[in-house]
Design a protein around this nucleic acid. Structure first.
Length: 484
RNA sequence: CGGGGCGUAGCGCAGCCUGGUUAGCGCGCUUGCUUUGGGAGCAAGAGGCCGCGAGUUCGAAUCUCGCCGCCCCGACCA
């Protein structure tokens, strides 16, 4: 290893440096912070308790937002008859290469193979046709939390695995307009989870035709910028029109007494969001968690040399813990040296550390340290109950602001292919250009820069400007980036 | 599927080219003592089908052939 590749001595050992080897750094952080690990099965991961706890901190508020907007949780089978999946032509074409199939059961070949769901549009449409008869039955607003399987060729922990956890919402509406409102409403919930909980600023907008979901009329997504300047799609919301309901002969009798097809939508957010948090906030010391989704928001490190000192600290902590009862606090009493604990909890991304030792106790104080910048300050013990929640909120906001500033500093507006090629050759980040919408332009740009269109800027118009790639009149502005 | 790399203790690796006693090192683990405000020190321990299978040889972690698995870089994707 070159000198620069070596883990930094001093604060953190055994993690490759983010600036030198981003993918290596990501892997080290995910595994050493004990979020997840490889498993006995290729491409599948074990999510460890700390990683799962972060997922729960994202999942629970999202579940709340989904319910607040009128949806109900269902559960549908994980095994889908192959024939179900073959009914919608584009959907088949998009997903068939990724099918994992069960062909035997009970010791016999199955009459019809069962596919481990890659997504549940086909199952849900097949089931809901029994429950939807009249316009009075609409809308049907379903959601389910589950696992899905996609036989990806190349996998990465949290970002792309053969099996992953997510929620998939599926809704059915009387009119297209109503369904399109739903698509936008759920994308907005995703934006809120990403920005307000995960502190990752995102661009929300429509995908180009070549990037849309297989079977959708159009797709929308939220896209975040990771610390290496690459884009990560963090959630999607799709409008299907009548595509799926026609394919599955799902009809209702309308107000005019005519049989019609409902307009449907689907939307999903996955455990990939955990990977986004790692890559958007982490640094050479490891993970950095926004307080709202941190399983441990405050780690208390007691420092003592004797049993007497230990019991003095224990006694004073009683009141401190009572004052912080609304905060997720953990006291690390393990028989390790303080320096070891400092580093370990920084690796695990805990936003605030409180050190309490004999020196602090003598003055009735505690030492409080921010993970964000390692700034230390002393706070009187009886003020912690007020100071800590305020600091957590400030850190939550600071992470988001820092992320937005980073993104803005790495986003440029360009108007020629040459400039785009030069940018992606020498820089990292997003490029915004006028675009005519032509798919061949996307291929051209991808061939020369590896970048793809991420989202079409909402409400943008070309305003008669020429397309940056081909020069024809532009119709929109689009964001380009290298994507995960 | 194309290109590259790697399988030796829980983890990370050396040994292999040039075959030869009992396979080594670091971390981790166990026990004890000393330590404890930025990854502690000493001592004593435990832990191996050297990926699998054939072959060559008096003798294989090491050489040959085959197989399997994983990782990284591309094409496909939440």
């Amino acid at each position: 290893m070159a000198e620069d590749d070596k883990p930094e001595s001093g604060f953190v050992k055994e993690i490759r440096k983010q600036s030198v080897d981003f993918p290596g750094w990501y892997n080290d952080v995910v595994r050493k912070a004990q979020l997840a690990d490889y498993s006995p099965v290729r491409g599948c991961m074990v999510i460890r308790p700390y990683g799962y706890a972060i997922w729960e901190k994202i999942r629970d508020p999202l579940d709340g937002l989904i319910k607040e907007t009128g949806h109900e949780n269902w559960y549908f089978p994980a095994l889908i008859p192959l024939s179900f999946l073959l009914k919608e032509a584009e959907h088949v074409e998009g997903f068939q290469p990724e099918f994992a199939m069960v062909t035997r059961g009970g010791g016999k070949d199955l009459e019809e193979p069962l596919v481990l769901r890659p997504t549940s549009e086909t199952m849900i449409a097949s089931v809901l046709r029994n429950y939807i008869q009249s316009y009075r039955d609409l809308p049907v607003l379903t959601n389910q939390w589950n696992n899905v399987f996609r036989w990806e060729l190349r996998t990465r922990l949290f970002l792309r695995t053969l099996e992953f956890l997510w929620q998939e919402g599926h809704t059915f509406h009387e009119t297209g307009a109503e369904a399109e409102e739903e698509v936008a409403r759920m994308l907005e919930q995703y934006r809120r989870i990403a920005e307000e909980w995960c502190a990752v600023p995102v661009l929300a907008g429509r995908k180009s035709d070549s990037e849309k979901f297989a079977g959708a009329q159009y797709s929308t997504s939220i896209e975040g910028m990771m610390m290496d300047g690459k884009a990560l799609q963090m959630g999607t919301s799709h409008y299907f029109g009548e595509n799926f309901t026609r394919a599955y002969d799902l009809t209702f009798t309308g107000r005019n007494n005519e049989r019609q097809y409902p307009h449907s939508t689907s939307w999903g957010v996955s455990t990939r969001m955990v990977g986004a948090v790692v890559m958007a906030h982490g640094d050479d010391s490891g993970l950095q968690l926004p307080p709202r989704i941190a399983p441990v928001q405050v780690i208390i490190i007691p420092i003592f040399r004797s049993d007497t000192e230990r019991s003095q600290i224990e006694a004073s902590l009683q009141q401190v813990l009572a004052d912080l009862e609304d905060i997720r606090v953990k006291v690390d009493w393990r028989d390790e040296r303080p320096g070891f604990k400092f580093n370990e909890w920084e690796l695990k991304g805990v936003p605030l550390r409180i050190e309490i030792g004999p020196r602090d106790l003598a003055k009735g104080e505690a030492t409080v340290v921010r993970r964000l910048n390692r700034v230390k300050q002393t706070v009187p013990l009886n003020e912690l109950g007020v100071a800590i929640p305020a600091m957590l909120e400030e850190i939550q906001a600071a992470l988001f602001t820092r992320g937005r500033e980073f993104r803005d500093a790495h986003t440029v507006k360009l108007d020629s292919l040459e400039a785009m090629v030069r940018f992606f050759d020498t820089s990292i980040g997003f490029v915004i250009t006028p675009w005519c919408g032509g798919e061949e332009d996307e291929r051209t740009v991808n061939d020369q820069t590896k970048a793809t269109t991420r989202v079409i800027v909402a409400g943008s118009e070309g305003k008669g400007r020429p397309c940056a790639v081909c020069g024809r009149p532009a119709t929109v502005e689009v964001v380009w980036g290298k994507a995960y």
